[in-house]
Design a protein around this nucleic acid. Structure first.
Lengths: 138, 138
DNA sequence: TCCTACAATGGACTTCGTCTAAGTCAAACA
DNA sequence: TGTTTGACTTAGACGAAGTCCATTGTAGGA
């Protein structure tokens, strides 16, 4: 994750304690935290950090392309640091657990011209839904 | 749409003016209204209908499987009466226009076992994004 | 060290949606 | 047809998630 900090500094990001802490919290595989969860963890490292700053910093990381916003339900947005490798999501319908997945095939090619309505289609988001092992056996 | 009203009555739905109006508003192809838009249109036919009733009725139509909830952005949920034929959505990233689309292929089969993490996968939602003809030429 | 533009703060505000208590009415039944 | 009753509707309070803004603080360059 220090690569991230380096990259950000290289882009002219002013480095502050708050931004460093937010970047540190967003680290790992299958990490999909809400803004409030990020805030809660950031507070343990930097007690005076405000919610607004967490929102601002997450928004900046998203527009820099370093973090993805994930919306799997109508609750809070989640932030996914795995922006380098394109992927989709698998969500447990009961407990909300999320996994990053990499389906085969090319879904963009699966949309015929007759179904494009003249749109310039550039991207597709897929959300698989089901039950995780724990919820399926419960 | 009177089929819908018949089906609902057959399921023991108490028929009220409010419910009839909501069902009438949700009629057509490529209809994806927010709850407030449904309310605004319902009010022109039945001025005293309340927002809460529109929310209640939409929620009931969704749990009866007659209407789908669509979330294409972080704004309000949209309600899609095209629940009979499974489909996905194509969304304009600039103006938010939505079209129902039917991609080829079977995206569920495209998720290898090694990418299922033990989940029982039952469904997939796809959202294509791009620019509609008007926004692309602007 | 000082300056200044950029960042952080906290609280008010907005949007979307849910809940509640009280009033109303569709439809079953006499 | 009139009565009755419990489901339906209403208005407004409430809540969660997120944005905005005026003020205060500070990173990093001169």
């Amino acid at each position: 994750m220090s690569d991230l900090l380096e990259r950000l500094r290289g882009r002219g990001w002013r480095m502050t304690a708050q931004r460093r802490v937010v970047a540190e919290v967003l680290n790992g595989e299958h990490v999909h935290l809400t803004a409030d969860e990020v805030h809660a963890r950031a507070v343990t490292k930097l007690p005076e950090i405000s919610r607004a700053t967490v929102y601002n910093t997450l928004g900046e990381l998203v527009s820099l392309g370093e973090v993805l916003e994930v919306t799997t339900d109508r609750r809070a947005k989640r932030y996914d640091p795995n922006a380098h490798r394109p992927h989709h999501h698998l969500v447990c319908a009961r407990c909300g657990a999320i996994r990053d997945v990499h389906p085969m095939g090319n879904p963009l090619a699966d949309l015929p011209d007759s179904e494009r309505f003249g749109f310039t289609v550039s991207d597709v988001e897929m959300t698989y839904r089901g039950l995780c092992p724990e919820c399926a056996s419960a």
